[in-house]
Design a protein around this nucleic acid. Structure first.
Length: 430
RNA sequence: GGAAGAAUGGCAGAGUGGUUGAAUGCGACGGUCUUGAAAACCGUUUUGGGGGCAACUCCAACGGGGGUUCGAAUCCCUCUUCUUCCGCCA
C-alpha cells in the first residue's frame, strides 16, 4: 500500500510504476474518488462539530432550549447519516483501488515485461565439470532410494514427495547449517505456523487488490476454518508485529523463520512436473528484516540477505549467479528484487534457489507497523525485507547434482560435515 | 467441543449515558536542586485525518464491525482475541 498523499503528489511516478510492472490499476479513478471522499468528509465534519457543540450545551440548558437543541442536533445527525450512506460505495471502490496501486520500483531496476528480461549482475564459481556422465536428480535419488514419489502419490497426490534416508538427514543438516549462520549474524530464530488468516496474506502484499479470489491459484484454503496455508513464513512474520509502534532502538529486528511452506502451483501446470524442483510443500528458512524507514539502510540489508545465499552456495560447492529482476517480474509489492540461481548440471542452466526483496514501507503500511524516531519523536513506517535462507528440497537438487561422484554417491562439503555426523559422502553403489 | 469472565494510552489500571482523549501509578523525556549521581519537587508524554503561511483549530479513534440515542469508553447485536474451569490430546 502506498501513501495516498504520495500518490496525489507523484501521479506520473505512480502511473509509470503501474505501466512497467504490468499491473492494471485505474489511477485517475482513484484520484477522482479521493477528491470526492475528502469533500464528503469535510462536510460531515462540519456537522459533527455542530453536534458536539450542542451536546455540551444540552445538559445545562433550560427545558425549553433543550427541546430546540435536541431537535437541531437530530437534524444534523440525519444529514451526517445521509452523507455517510451516500459515500459508502465510493469508499469501497476507493479502498479496492488503493490496494491495487503497486509499490514503486527503484529507478535502477531494469524495465522489462517478464523473467526473460531479468539481468545477470554477478556470477560466482565455475560451472561444475565432470569426468564422467553426471546423473540428474531423478537418477541420483532413484539409485540411492532417497525419495518416494510413487507410493506417496497414492497417499497425498501429485507434486508430493517423501525424502528418505541420507537425503532426509541432509535436508535437516542444511537447515541447521543456515540457521546457525544466521544466528551468528544476529537473526532470531522463529518456528512459524503455516496456518494463517486471509488478512495476513493481504498484509504481506503478494496479491494485487483486496479480492480473495485473486490468490486462488497460489494458496491452499481451509474453508471450514477460514484459514490458509502460508506459502512462506514471510507472511506470518510480517503480520506478527501489526499495529505496533516500536522504538528506534529496537531496530533492526532480524528474524530467521523456519516453517513448512505450501503452494498450490495451479498456474504452473506442466512446469517441472518431475522431481523436487516444484512441489506443493517444502521446508524453508526465511530471513526477514524490519528496519528504519531509510532506503539506504534497506539496500544495506538487501546485500546482507542476498549474500547469505551466495555464501551458502559457495560453502556447498554450488556455482550460482545473481539476477536483478526486471519491473515486470519483480512482484506487486517490491522496490527491488534479486534472485540467486544455482547451477543445475542436468538442465544445463541456473535455477532459482532464493529471492531477496526490498519492500520499503509497503507491508508496514498494511500492518501498521511503525517506530518512533529518536531525533524527532515522529512516528514512521518501518521498512521490511525478506529473503530465502534455504528452501528444500529445491536446494537439494543443485546440491546433489553438483556434488555427485561417478558411483552415484554425493560428497558432503567440509563445512556441512559437522551437521552430518562427520561423514564425507552419502549414497553410492554398494 | 461445553461453561464463565475479560479486552481502555509504552505498561499497569480507574472510569457504567453528557466539557472524559480519558483519573491515578509506573516508565520515558525536559527542568529545579547537586561537583556528579540518587532522592525530592515541577513540567511534558496516543495516533490518524481535515483547514490555515503560521499561532492555531476542527473531526475521528477506549479489540474490529454494526445498532440504540440529541449525545456512547459506558447500553444492545455481532465478530475476533485472551484468561479460567471442564472434556479431548502429541
Amino acid at each position: 500500500m502506498l501513501d495516498i498523499k504520495f500518490i496525489r503528489e507523484n501521479v506520473d511516478i505512480v502511473k509509470n510504476a503501474i505501466k512497467v510492472k504490468g499491473v492494471s490499476c485505474d489511477l485517475d479513478a482513484l484520484l477522482k474518488l479521493d477528491e470526492k471522499i475528502i469533500a464528503n468528509k469535510t462536510e460531515v465534519q462540519g456537522y459533527q462539530e455542530k453536534v458536539n457543540a450542542l451536546s455540551k450545551q444540552i445538559p445545562v440548558a433550560s427545558d425549553d432550549d433543550k427541546k430546540k437543541m435536541v431537535e437541531e442536533s437530530k437534524n444534523y445527525g440525519d444529514k451526517i447519516k445521509a452523507l455517510e450512506k451516500e459515500i459508502e460505495p465510493d469508499l469501497k471502490k476507493y479502498n479496492a483501488l488503493l490496494m491495487s496501486v503497486p509499490q514503486i520500483p527503484d529507478p535502477s531496476v531494469p524495465v522489462g515485461a517478464d523473467d526473460s528480461e531479468n539481468v545477470v549482475i554477478k556470477t560466482n564459481g565455475e560451472i561444475t565439470k565432470f569426468d564422467f556422465q553426471p546423473r540428474d536428480q531423478m537418477e541420483l535419488t532413484e539409485l540411492n532410494d532417497w525419495v518416494d514419489f510413487d507410493h506417496i502419490a497414492k497417499v497425498s497426490g501429485a507434486r508430493i514427495y517423501a525424502l528418505k534416508g541420507e537425503l532426509a538427514r541432509l535436508e535437516v543438516a542444511l537447515h541447521m547449517y543456515v540457521l546457525d549462520k544466521l544466528a551468528k549474524k544476529g537473526f532470531r530464530q522463529i518456528s512459524c505456523p503455516s496456518l494463517c488468516k486471509i488478512d495476513a496474506l493481504f498484509q504481506a502484499g503478494h496479491f494485487v487488490g483486496d479480492d480473495p479470489s485473486v490468490m486462488d491459484n497460489d494458496v491452499y484454503k481451509i474453508e471450514k476454518d477460514e484459514l490458509c496455508l502460508a506459502g512462506t513464513s514471510e507472511i506470518i512474520i510480517n503480520a506478527l508485529h501489526q499495529g505496533e509502534i516500536l522504538n528506534e532502538d529496537d531496530l533492526p529486528v532480524l528474524y530467521a523463520g523456519y516453517s513448512p511452506c505450501f503452494r498450490r502451483e495451479a498456474g504452473a501446470a506442466g512446469k517441472d512436473t518431475r522431481g523436487l524442483v516444484r512441489v506443493h510443500q517444502f521446508m524453508k528458512v526465511e530471513e526477514f528484516v524490519i528496519c528504519k524507514n531509510d532506503i539506504e539502510e534497506s539496500k544495506k540489508w538487501h546485500q546482507v540477505l542476498q549474500n547469505s545465499m551466495e555464501e551458502l552456495c559457495a560453502d556447498m560447492n554450488i556455482p550460482c549467479h545473481v539476477l536483478e529482476a526486471c519491473t515486470g517480474d519483480m512482484g506487486f509489492n517490491k522496490i527491488y528484487m534479486t534472485d540467486v540461481e544455482a547451477w543445475v548440471p542436468s538442465q544445463n542452466k541456473y535455477r532459482e534457489v532464493s529471492s531477496t526483496s526490498t519492500i520499503g514501507d509497503f507491508q508496514a503500511r498494511r500492518t501498521k507497523l511503525r517506530y518512533r524516531e529518536n531525533a524527532t519523536g515522529k512516528v514512521q513506517y518501518c521498512h521490511t525485507l525478506n529473503s530465502t535462507g534455504v528452501a528444500t528440497p529445491r536446494f537439494l537438487v543443485a546440491f546433489i547434482e553438483n556434488n555427485q561422484n561417478a558411483d552415484g554417491s554425493v560428497n558432503i562439503p567440509e563445512k556441512l560435515r559437522p551437521y552430518m555426523g562427520g561423514v564425507e559422502k552419502i549414497g553410492g553403489k554398494k
